[in-house]
């Protein structure tokens, strides 16, 4: 029996995930974390004005950053799973659609996608008829359909920045996530599929009961990495007037003109968050390896 190769999917744009054996990186992690926390503490104690004021001003932004990140990653996971399954599908059409999605999205910068969805599509949607007019013209339709259509039109016509931000980030990261899912699924030995099918499980049951639960172990580290990358990229949404961490810092700075202080704190907080998250991802990775004998 050929030894199954342990597959590791490396994604370069997330944070470095410290590994137990990796002493150098391990200590770099501690130096960064203690350094960042130390800086925050020192600045707030030594110069409470403006640093402590900034620290008190930013938590709302941190919440929004997390809100955007979590909603986006959920959308990205959903799209990624579908895309990953599409990419391994034997159906030529489905395969082509999934591959094209990945190709197109990966070729357009995230910032451009954000602009496109919020400003470009926003302009198109703003030309939609008034919800009230739609309701009137659909008088003959059943109530529930009218309700849904009017709701959707009204929503699109006046798209909240948060929705545009989450859609753009989710669609963008969904494409990357699709590749992660595809690689994760393909990393599972073919014998697993054969064993499940020979017991009588159909394709779908085999995928969801046997393949994905195992692929998850390979998928999780890069997903965690994407999550961290996404959290950092979420600072882009500050351009759409979403009051995330960066936007809050900018608001503080533009009122008090203390740009240096505000952005220093913003940078330190991003650093602390991503450092802690990367630790969490590696802890989860260890836990998910429970059935692998070392």
């Amino acid at each position: 029996m050929p030894d199954k190769q342990e597959v590791r999917i490396d994604v370069s744009d997330g944070a470095a995930i410290p590994r137990k054996r990796d002493i150098g990186l391990f200590s770099a992690w501690w130096i960064s974390l203690i350094g960042a926390l130390g800086c925050i503490a020192y600045l707030c104690l030594a110069k409470p004005e403006p640093y402590l004021d900034i620290l008190k001003f930013l938590p709302d932004g941190i919440l929004v950053t997390f809100e955007v990140t979590i909603l986006s990653i959920l959308l990205a996971l959903f799209l990624g799973l579908i895309t990953g399954l599409g990419r391994i599908s034997k159906n030529r059409t489905i395969n082509l659609i999934a591959s094209t999605y990945v190709e197109v999205v990966r070729g357009i910068p995230l910032l451009v996608q954000l602009f496109y969805i919020y400003f470009a599509l926003g302009q198109v949607f703003s030309n939609l008829p008034n919800p009230a007019d739609v309701a009137e013209s659909m008088a003959a339709w059943p109530g529930i359909i009218v309700y849904v259509v009017v709701g959707v039109v009204g929503f699109l016509k006046d798209m909240p920045p948060l929705v545009a931000a989450v859609t753009a980030m989710g669609v963008c990261y969904g494409a990357y996530m699709g590749e992660v899912f595809r690689a994760g699924i393909e990393s599972i030995d073919k014998g697993q599929t054969e064993a499940a099918r020979s017991l009588g499980f159909n394709r779908r049951q085999t995928m969801f009961l046997v393949i994905l639960p195992q692929a998850w172990r390979t998928i999780l580290p890069p997903v965690g990495n994407e999550f961290i990358a996404l959290l950092k990229d979420s600072s882009l949404v500050s351009i759409l007037a979403v009051a995330d961490l960066l936007r809050r810092g900018r608001e503080f700075a533009s009122v008090t003109f203390s740009y240096f202080e505000a952005y220093t704190m913003v940078a330190l907080i991003y650093l602390v968050i991503t450092l802690i998250l990367s630790k969490g991802v590696s802890a989860m990775e260890t836990r998910l390896n429970y059935y692998v004998r070392d």
């Binding site: 029996m1 030995d189 697993q192 054969e194 499940a196 099918r197 009588g200 499980f201 195992q214 692998v292």
Partner: peptide, 20 residues
């Protein structure tokens, strides 16, 4: 085919137990 497969037990060279 899935119903027919339930009538046929299969044992593989490489065991293929579900490790999870």
């Amino acid at each position: 085919i899935n119903a027919i497969r339930m009538e046929l037990g299969m044992v593989f060279q490489s065991f293929n137990l579900f490790p999870h």
